[in-house]
Design a protein around this nucleic acid. Structure first.
Lengths: 152, 152
DNA sequence: TATTGTTATACTCTATAACTATA
DNA sequence: TATAGTTATAGAGTATAACAATA
């Protein structure tokens, strides 16, 4: 425990900031998700990519990057890891782009991912009632709408 | 614009996840805050530390780290930067700990920080009415309450 | 023994610039 | 010209382990 400053003395002016609470809450959920997915050797971003490919078979790396807000350059090592682990396949389409799809192992993995994430989401969403959940998601979406939308 | 996949075809199953929306919304606000504070050459974390020291003069690096969820080891370069720019002073207390306080330049800087952050917060909080703001902050605090609380 | 500050180190995520080859 | 994928590189943030001085 801390002796220098106790709760009565300590003043934290950041507590009423939306940005601060947003960042701290996001960190908490991301840490829990990372721990959950760590059991099956996947990071949150990798799991997201698997789910997106599963629902959008034939999409490209750039499509994924745009959907997740990840730059083209940073998609490369990400996809390389998923390829090396035989979770994702790439078939040439253009000569410059590749159609992505899940391998059988990838299909198996994404089912585990869905189970893990569902439990993770349920844990946090169950803290609110239906209207609360709805308002919360809508509020976060409207904050997100202020994105810079800056491409590369 | 993207030719490969349009909005009608593309399916994003992450859109209903609280953790996903939380992370994306947090990124948007942090980016805006970083741009805002960039005008005065400060990062969000540095600005937070200045505000905390201002309201808790005499606190230690460890106190700040605990309040902000930053590890002792990572406080060192952070405080070194603020010290080199003559924004923060350290006076020996223990022989092992130092009491932190703002220099005159630091006091001046923190006023600018408060102005910048107020405008930034106002921009986003004005998207909601009073009850909405209250519910949102309370919801984020309750999510935060699930923190691991793991010290070093 | 526990705590403060520190060093060194590594890993993740993100950002920019530049190159290729295709369209 | 614009796009897809790539390479290389740099900057943040965060994590662990270990150490010295002090309480």
């Amino acid at each position: 425990m801390e002796k220098t400053e106790d709760a009565r003395t300590w003043r934290n002016p950041l507590e009423d900031f939306l940005g601060y609470q947003l960042r701290r809450a996001s960190t908490v959920m991301m840490a829990h998700l990372a721990a959950t997915l760590g059991d099956i050797g996947l990071r949150p971003t990798e799991a997201s990519v698997l789910m997106l490919i599963d629902e959008n078979s034939g999409c490209t790396q750039s499509d994924l990057g745009r959907a997740l807000g990840i730059k083209r350059a940073n998609m490369v090592p990400l996809m390389a890891r998923l390829g090396q682990r035989d979770l994702v396949e790439r078939a040439p389409v253009d000569g410059r782009s590749h159609a992505l799809s899940l391998t059988p192992a990838g299909k198996l993995a994404v089912r585990e991912v869905r189970r893990k994430i569902s439990a993770h989401e349920e844990l946090f969403q169950s803290m609110f009632d239906v209207e609360g959940r709805g308002f919360l998601l809508e509020a976060l979406r409207s904050i997100r709408a202020n994105e810079d939308a800056g491409e590369d």
